[in-house]
């Protein structure tokens, strides 16, 4: 397949991601996938792709990329700017590029992760049903690793758009994030100590030690019940679980782990996980408690909003 993009410089961390790899969690293969799946989906819809196509996930600082074919691209997510051959272009909109064009993104001014979609999708080989890069397992993406200068990326079959597309609104990411969460699975280990109430009343700050494995938070220690041990017999974990290790500093698990050995006090709603992808070191985070029933209603509403957004963009 002919290459469509050449990486000139990757920025801080550049990986290929799609919606994730779901068939082998029982064998220790984590989901991986775009951390802000909302921005990822919109980028794809803007160039006429299905949401499941692979995009480039850019972290904190953006890449420089040479275009090798005529195609439509779109950049969404964190505001890293967007320059085509040195002139500024609109984000959250489709952009026609020609061979020899150079795209450049800078430091994220707002948010943490940006997404670049290409018509036809980034066509690295599918591994176990997904093109997402799992850095810990060295699989998916391009040779299971982050992208580097000189890498060539192929595009899948795609068509040029009849008319340019843009999202009529662009999310502005806050520096103080409210994340709705359901108590549990191990909330009872924190209920008598007052830890559960304190957890939902505390403003935490995001640590620079965060990565795709987990968002590490710091604040007053979340205390477990006097009779609760630090570790638990390892259990399956899901994206959004908030672990409380021995030091009481929460770790919000993202998409790179399947089993964990620490008690989880709460779980962020699936409908709010995309927001977590935009939390950058130094930002503050507070968890807002919702019931399971309310959480499932909010999740259903969010899926409805995504479907409406897709229809809007497809209509042009």
């Amino acid at each position: 397949m002919n290459p469509a993009l050449r990486i000139l410089s990757p920025g801080l961390s550049l990986t290929v991601q799609d919606l994730g790899r779901f068939g082998a969690r029982h064998l220790g293969v984590p989901p991986s996938g775009a951390l802000d799946d909302y921005a990822h989906r919109v980028a794809n819809w803007l160039v006429g792709n299905a949401a499941a196509c692979a995009t480039l996930e850019m972290t904190v600082s953006g890449p420089r990329i040479e275009c090798l074919t005529e195609a439509d691209i779109a950049v969404t997510g964190a505001d890293m700017g967007l320059w085509l051959n040195g002139s500024s272009r609109r984000r959250w909109a489709s952009l026609r590029v020609k061979p020899g064009d150079v795209l450049e993104l800078g430091l994220a001014e707002n948010g943490c992760r940006g997404y670049l979609a290409l018509a036809g999708g980034i066509a690295v080989p599918e591994v176990m049903g997904s093109r997402s890069t799992c850095l810990g397992g060295g699989l998916g993406g391009l040779e299971g690793r982050g992208l580097a200068s000189g890498d060539l990326l192929p595009a899948g079959p795609g068509q040029l758009l009849d008319a340019p597309r843009c999202l009529p609104w662009a999310p502005i990411y806050p520096q103080h994030h409210l994340l709705r969460a359901i108590a549990g699975p191990h909330d009872l280990l924190f209920s008598f100590s007052g830890g559960l109430d304190r957890f939902f009343g505390t403003t935490f700050s995001a640590s620079p030690r965060s990565n795709r494995m987990g968002l590490r938070l710091s604040g007053p220690a979340v205390e477990r019940n006097a009779d609760a041990s630090t570790g638990i017999v390892s259990e399956p974990v899901v994206p959004g679980n908030v672990q409380i290790p021995g030091d009481g500093q929460p770790i919000l698990l993202l998409r790179e782990q399947t089993i964990g050995g620490y008690a989880c006090i709460a779980t962020v709603l699936s409908a709010d996980l995309w927001r977590v992808g935009q939390v950058k070191p130094g930002d503050t985070v507070r968890f807002v408690r919702v019931s399971l029933e309310a959480g499932q209603q909010l999740a259903a509403q969010w899926r409805g909003f995504l479907a409406a957004t897709e229809r809007l963009l497809a209509a042009g």
Partner: peptide
């Protein structure tokens, strides 16, 4: 059973290895 977010349920069959 334990609730693990809005899309997963943990079934607990014991507490020991």
């Amino acid at each position: 059973f334990r609730i693990s977010g809005d899309r997963a349920l943990i079934a607990v069959y014991g507490d020991e290895v």
